[in-house]
Design a protein around this nucleic acid. Structure first.
Lengths: 208, 208
DNA sequence: AAGATATGACTTCTCGGTAAGTTACCATGT
DNA sequence: ACATGGTAACTTACCGAGAAGTCATATCTT
């Protein structure tokens, strides 16, 4: 048999290697989505071979699910923590954003995995996504319900639409953040506050 | 040769057939994205065969580009029309939304084609997407710049982040609309106004 | 006859996934 | 000290499904 010059262990322990792979994969999945992500590319970018990924994660779906599992729980837990606080309305929203920026600081793209339309709608991925997304949606809905109640709006469809909008706002701020890597979590938090204040300032009143 | 029972014309003129295909394809691309869309499925759903699609649109990319071309121009033109009006701030935003709901009434999913991360980033698609997206982004940026100026915010990054957020708001409202097909454009417009008023109401002030 | 509308069957190629083997490390017995 | 064997970390080379894209041909209208 011909020798295989690159075979054999490189002495990197599994846990560490898995993390490297997850980092690269999260970026790929988060950037172009599940369907457009190529496992061979992920392997190349992670500096290892394709079978190692399959050895560690089983399948493309398994890899995607692992990316989510590694972070989504942290995220939901943080949001729940803030929900237990006594902030309401816009204040709660801004606090939540701050918490999310903190948690996502080094894994910004993970957020997008929760809303990847090209991800499978059946099987393990769907289940994992649904679980995490439902947890977050529930909290968002609760917060928005509170916020709208303060303004005298109670229609369930209004709350539903506003919840979707709130999640969309989070989406876009995180997307913007991904596009501006020099910004840190604290700066994003300040920026978000500044924009909220500007929107609610006297200049905007009475025009709607 | 054995006869091919389904071959031959069905008497549907090209223009009409193209529109049928575009309708089906827009939904597919808009729902699951470019990469996850299967041309054979599109053909089946449109009630015709795959080669006809290739005959009319040349390639998967050509089909995607045609979906955009058929609608994005209408959309940008409408937004430009509103931008030429004298509305500013939130008011301009709401008017723009109303115009978009009107234009998108029967082609709601098209909006998502403009932000499909799984679409190719080179070639004709990229060019078409960039052209249309740039046109809309420019108007959004302009409107947001105006709005923030009213509140005394001038930082370019703030404007940039707020523009992204605004587009995200539009995104999510349209997504919500897609998920609630019974709602018509007028109802969406009213809903958006109601939510804007609620957000800017006294109940929310002084908390940020 | 010509040209537009249409399709079944095919080719080609990408990409998820796998089989089988290679190298390094480490524990144990002598 | 050093063979021995077990295990973890790794790769090359390949397979097969399925999807993009094509070809040759058929049917309808004028």
């Amino acid at each position: 048999m011909a020798p295989r010059p690159n075979a054999g262990t490189k002495g990197v322990p599994r846990a560490e290697r898995e993390q490297q792979i997850l980092d690269v994969a999260s970026i790929a999945f988060g950037t172009v989505g599940f369907a457009a992500t190529n496992i061979a590319d992920v392997a190349r970018d992670a500096g290892i071979s394709k079978p190692l990924i399959y050895n560690y994660f089983g399948s493309k779906e398994g890899l995607f699910a692992a990316c989510l599992d590694a972070s989504a729980d942290l995220l939901a837990t943080e949001i729940e923590r803030i929900a237990r606080g006594d902030a309401v309305g816009i204040e709660r929203g801004l606090l939540t954003l701050a918490g999310m920026f903190e948690v996502l600081e080094d894994r910004r793209h993970v957020w997008r995995l929760l809303h990847d339309p090209s991800a499978p709608t059946t099987g393990r991925i769907a289940e994992v996504v649904r679980t995490h997304a439902a947890r977050i949606d529930k909290l968002a809905h609760e917060g928005v319900h509170e916020l709208l109640a303060l303004a005298g709006v109670d229609d369930e469809r209004d709350v539903s639409a506003m919840t979707a909008t709130w999640l969309g706002i989070v989406d876009s701020l995180i997307d913007w953040w991904v596009a501006h890597p020099d910004e840190d979590a604290a700066a994003m938090t300040e920026r978000a506050s500044r924009l909220a204040v500007a929107l609610l300032s006297d200049g905007q009143r009475g025009e709607a």
